[in-house]
């Protein structure tokens, strides 16, 4: 078991205590002895420091500054006040929230249902459907957005044509402010959540069959087994998927810039698109920095809430 990650935990504590007790000489001796380990880490550490660590710290500093090429000045919370006082931010937040609140549950639940159905089938059909549902996930969102813009075309689009079968008249999906956001939401819902399906299938495979046999003995129906055995045991996977897709959903951007540009008006403005516009169209770096810190905090809050709600009941 010592090779497992879990086994490393007690050793970690031991090590720390040693560091505190023994004088620094020992520390240096240990570092010297293990110099090759540091050399192995060096490339990643340099890259990480330059392009991750420094920018992260800098982002927080920037959000309190008015950026100028030579000598930025600290302006306290002014950027944050401007963020919260602008209508654009609240509209973007509202749109992003609506997008998330609809697409995340839909994606996760549909992945659960689809993988339950797939799991019932034989090995060959399983891998066939797994591929069919995962393939759209490996395709770039740029491509998916381009083809959906074409499918949403008012005159010749596939979407209006199919709706016509059901007697729904042609709709200018992306061109009207009351349908544009919903068009993006529908599109997101119709892209299968491939990651979810693969992970659910893997987790379902690791549930012990004896549980189901016991339930069958007690005369529980398939549906009851699903509700009382499968779903509770998949909870860790569900938590992971909800977190993953919420984080992804808060960062929705590619569809926006490729399909609507945030319009019409600001009907499809989202947080990341707003950050992009503020930072790289208006070049207001301080304000964009503050917006991105706010985005980070929102994602963090959501993650913590979801973690609290969905984690194992103890």
């Amino acid at each position: 078991m010592t090779q497992m990650p879990m086994g490393a935990v007690p050793k970690k504590k031991e090590e720390k205590m040693k560091l505190f007790r023994k004088p620094n000489k020992n520390l240096f001796r240990q570092m010297k002895k293990n110099y090759s380990a540091y050399l192995f880490l060096l490339p990643k550490l340099i890259l990480f420091t330059l392009f991750v660590a420094i920018p992260v710290v800098w982002a927080f500093i920037l959000s309190f500054q008015k950026y100028k090429v030579f000598g930025s000045e600290f302006i306290g919370l002014k950027n944050y006040i401007e963020v919260f006082q602008s209508d654009a931010f609240w509209i973007a937040l509202k749109n992003t929230l609506l997008f998330t609140v609809v697409t995340v549950p839909f994606g996760v639940i549909s992945a659960l249902v689809l993988s339950t159905l797939i799991f019932e089938l034989g090995k060959l059909s399983q891998s066939l459907f797994r591929s069919a549902f995962y393939l759209p996930t490996v395709t770039s969102m740029v491509i998916i957005a381009m083809v959906w813009r074409w499918m949403y075309n008012y005159d010749f689009g596939l979407f209006n044509y199919v709706l016509g079968w059901f007697g729904v008249g042609p709709v200018n999906w992306l061109g009207q402010s009351n349908t544009a956001l919903w068009a993006l939401i529908i599109m997101q819902c119709l892209i299968p959540f491939g990651v979810g399906i693969i992970m659910y299938l893997a987790s379902m495979g690791s549930i012990s069959q004896s549980l189901y046999e016991a339930a069958r003995m007690d005369g529980a129906s398939k549906f009851k087994q699903w509700i009382h055995i499968t779903i509770p045991l998949l909870k860790p996977t569900t938590l992971y998927l909800v977190l993953l897709s919420t984080i992804g959903s808060f960062q929705v951007f590619t569809q926006i810039i490729m399909m609507t540009g945030g319009g019409p008006g600001s009907a499809t403005e989202t947080l990341v698109h707003l950050i992009y516009k503020t930072g790289f169209r208006d070049f207001d770096f301080g304000l964009a920095g503050a917006q991105s810190v706010v985005l980070f905090v929102i994602i963090l809050i959501f993650s913590v809430i979801q973690f609290r709600v969905l984690r194992h009941d103890e």
């Binding site: 982002a59 991105s292 980070f296 993650s303």
Partner: peptide, 19 residues
């Protein structure tokens, strides 16, 4: 290193751009 996995990429856009 791992704790930065939690931070969305957009946070570092502006500083990276300046850098």
């Amino acid at each position: 290193i791992i704790s930065t996995m939690m931070i969305p990429g957009q946070v570092t856009l502006v500083p990276l751009f300046i850098m």
